[in-house]
Structures are given as C-alpha cells and as structure tokens.
C-alpha cells in the first residue's frame, strides 16, 4: 500500500458518460480560455461550450451542470478521447471538475500522458467492456490500479495496460522530474560526448 494520501491505487466511484467519439481538447476547454498563467480553478471551464450558452447561462439540457463529481468521478467517453492539442489545461480542467479516471476504447497520446501527470488515471477498455459501460450510465466501478483491473460488478470487468512508471507515479505520488534530475550526471556526460 502507498503512503501517498492522494494515491489513486484504489478508486471507487460511479461513472458519467460522454459517448461522443473524438472529443477533442477544444471541447474539454476552449482555446479562448488558455490565456491563463496558472493552472488553478479551471473546472468551471471544463466542457464550457457544452455547458453554457452564448450569454454564459448554464444550459438546462446539459447533464454536466448538475453532475456531482464527488460521487461520479469516472468519465466514460467515446472512442479517441482527448484528441487535438497538447494543452495540459485539459486535464487541469477535468481534475478540478472532479474527474479522477477516464475510460475509453482509445485515448489520444498527448492527453493520456498529460492526464497521468495530473492524477487522472487514463484507462483503455476492451470494446465489449467499453460498450457495456456506455450502455450503463452511473454504475459503480472499482478501479484497482495496483492490479490493473476494473471491476464492473455485474458487467464485464477487465484488465488494462498502463505504462509502469506512470502507474508508479500515480500510486506513490512520485514526481517524474525528481526522477529525471537524478540522471543529471548521465545528462552531463551525454552533453560532453555530443558537444
């Protein structure tokens, strides 16, 4: 077990669904909000143009506006979630909104890398489990990151792949920069060789 209080070794929550395929980072947080110089408080901008009309009024027909992410912290999304830009504002916004894991049948590379660095577990589900999740909104899901297993109760649970170092960092709260800087001598030696 981890001593890390923010550890995502075990995550037990309910799902909310965004079944659309190819949800890009411009949907997750529109570019016009990227003039910020901090990473705090972006949750209110998550899926902004889905949640609010042109006058900034919350849309009644958008379920995201009444979602309690304290209870529903696992986003199940259509194929290829997070495609598009490299903006880390996307996982910053999702985390602040309350998302702790994203499950899809495909997750875009840069988003996947950014998510894992911001305490969101990116999980690729096999097609039948993904389809089942998309048909069962709000189910209770247990994610065991240690064993890399998602328990869907009555549904088709599944094992998932995650890059071992990203998993280690998510569980232990290890800072990758610290790990990188522990190679300073190697970096200096490389620079001396290639100069």
């Amino acid at each position: 077990m981890s001593d890390n209080p923010a550890s995502l070794a075990h995550l037990h929550s309910r799902t909310f669904l965004l079944p659309q395929e190819d949800i890009d980072t411009d949907q997750i947080i529109p570019a016009r909000f990227l003039t910020t110089t901090t990473q705090d408080g972006l949750g209110k901008l998550a899926f902004h143009d889905w949640r609010y009309d042109e006058d900034g009024k919350a849309r009644d027909d958008c379920a995201l506006n009444t979602l309690d992410t304290g209870e529903f912290a696992i986003l199940v999304a259509g194929r290829n979630f997070g495609c598009g830009s490299s903006r880390e504002h996307a996982p910053w916004a999702l985390h602040d909104f309350g998302v702790r894991a994203v499950i899809s049948s495909e997750i875009a590379d840069i988003f996947r890398s950014n998510a894992a660095k911001n305490n969101i577990v990116p999980i690729l589900a096999p097609p039948h489990s993904h389809a089942w999740l998309l048909e069962h909104e709000g189910v209770e899901v247990k994610i065991d990151l240690e064993r890399q297993y998602v328990d869907l109760g009555n549904g088709p649970g599944f094992h998932f792949e995650i890059e071992p170092f990203a998993k280690h960092c998510l569980i232990e709260g290890t800072d990758p920069l610290g790990f990188l800087l522990s190679h300073s001598d190697d970096i200096t030696a490389y620079e001396a060789c290639s100069a």
Binding site: S86, P91, I110, N118, F165, P176, L177, L180, L181, H183
Partner: peptide, 18 residues
C-alpha cells in the same frame, strides 16, 4: 513532437524527457 506543460518544465530543468 508536442508536449504538455509539465514536460515543458522537465525540458527546461533537465533538457530531457522521459
């Protein structure tokens, strides 16, 4: 290739990426 802001910090600090 494109990177996120955390990795921008990694490169600034170490000139490397994992």
């Amino acid at each position: 290739f494109g990177i996120g802001t955390t990795e921008v910090g990694h490169v600034l600090a170490s000139q490397c990426l994992l």
